[in-house]
Computed example of a mutant assay.
Amino acid sequence: MNNKLLEVKNLKTYFETDQGTVKAVDGINFFIEKQKTVGIVGESGSGKTVTAQSIIQIMPWPGKIIDGEVLFYKNEKEIIDLAKLDPKGKIIREIRGKEIGYIFQEPMTALSPIHTVGSQIIEAIRIHNSMLTKKEARKKAITLLKNVGIPSPEKKINDYTFQLSGGMRQRVMIAMALSCNPKLLIADEPTTAIDVTLQAQIIKLLKDLQKKYEMSILIITHDLAVIAEMADEVIVMYLGKIVESGTVFDIFDNPKHPYTKALLKSIPNKTSKKYLDTIKGMVPDAFSIPNGCEFEPRCEFSIKGKCNKYKPPIIEIKKGQFVRCFLYEKACEENE
């Protein structure tokens, strides 16, 4: 029995600019199972957000999917390739918000400052369910606000975004994303710009809502602590490519790629030294991608004459754990 909800195959999303081509997402593969959580992690500029935007085709101009498939398993008989749909067409517009909800990275800019939060949630509800009256949609909006932990939702529904705290705005964004009971919720940096206490509340809220609505979650973040708390499967991205993927236990207990190891070393903990470990160098400019392995200039395990000249293959270390690195070619050959 197929338990997949979404499957991404060789997805490539490029931005053609006057300076050249930006390969924001460059041939990635992954899938999301029903009622499971997949986390995508990496530094800024890794392609995490563009990956999420590509799924429902909301990339900013001039971003365009030039190759690959995004297969959405709507039901047992209907599979829709979202990558082949017209970004402004009827089919994709029906899927956005209804089948796939999206929590945007910054609610202050994603929500309208001149409309009440209630009017925005009501609009989202009625777009996909025109049979509901405005009164019925308002009642549902109040219930949604209550479900995401907003106190006095009957009053808060009339507030504007500038009247709410950062945590409240984030909860409103979550309520809007859940307005039509989506099968998949994409959460782009849902804990950014809020304090640690609120982060814990948002994480717990998302986990509770996932159970309540029986939905899958794709969470995009640079915070490995959030990934450890929420994800079943983890994808590590760097410069538009997946460098490692596996279960949350594989990635945190037995990381393979030098980049994954470096990310984990940079997490502060009780036994940390005076100074945290850092990854040397910076993410390269989008127009100055290295010829060989993208991470080679920053890698302490680089094999000169190989890593700086050739693109590493994807190697399956064990069932379900993949790594893009020359260091494991020998292990792969021995397994064969």
Rank of each mutant, 00 (worst) to 15 (best):
N3L: 08
L5V: 09
N10M: 04
L11I: 07
L11H: 02
T13G: 09
F15K: 02
T21A: 04
A24P: 02
A24T: 03
V25G: 01
D26F: 00
G27K: 11
F31C: 05
T37R: 11
T37Y: 12
V41H: 03
V41L: 04
V41C: 05
E43S: 08
S44H: 10
S46A: 15
T51I: 09
P62D: 06
I65C: 08
V70A: 06
Y73F: 15
N75M: 09
I80V: 11
D81M: 09
K90N: 06
K90A: 07
K98V: 04
I100R: 03
G101C: 07
I103H: 06
I103D: 01
F104M: 08
L111E: 05
L111T: 08
T116G: 04
S119I: 08
N129T: 11
L132F: 07
T133S: 15
K135I: 09
K135Q: 09
L144K: 05
L144C: 13
L145W: 04
N147D: 15
V148A: 14
V148I: 14
G149Y: 00
I150N: 09
E154Y: 09
K156T: 11
I157H: 03
N158L: 10
Y160A: 01
L164Y: 06
Q170L: 12
M173N: 00
M176A: 11
S179K: 06
T192M: 06
V196R: 04
Q199F: 01
A200Q: 10
L205Y: 03
L206M: 15
D208I: 05
L209R: 05
L209V: 10
I219T: 14
T221Q: 03
T221P: 02
A225H: 07
I227M: 04
M230V: 02
A231S: 14
M237K: 08
K241L: 07
E244A: 14
G246K: 00
T247P: 05
T247L: 05
D253S: 14
K261F: 08
S266L: 13
I267H: 05
N269E: 10
I279F: 03
S288Q: 15
P290I: 11
C293S: 07
E296K: 10
P297A: 05
R298C: 03
C299E: 00
E300V: 14
K304Q: 11
K304E: 10
G305N: 12
K306Y: 12
Y310N: 13
I315R: 09
E316K: 07
I317K: 12
K319P: 02
R324W: 01
L327R: 02
K330W: 12
K330A: 11
C332W: 14
E333Y: 15
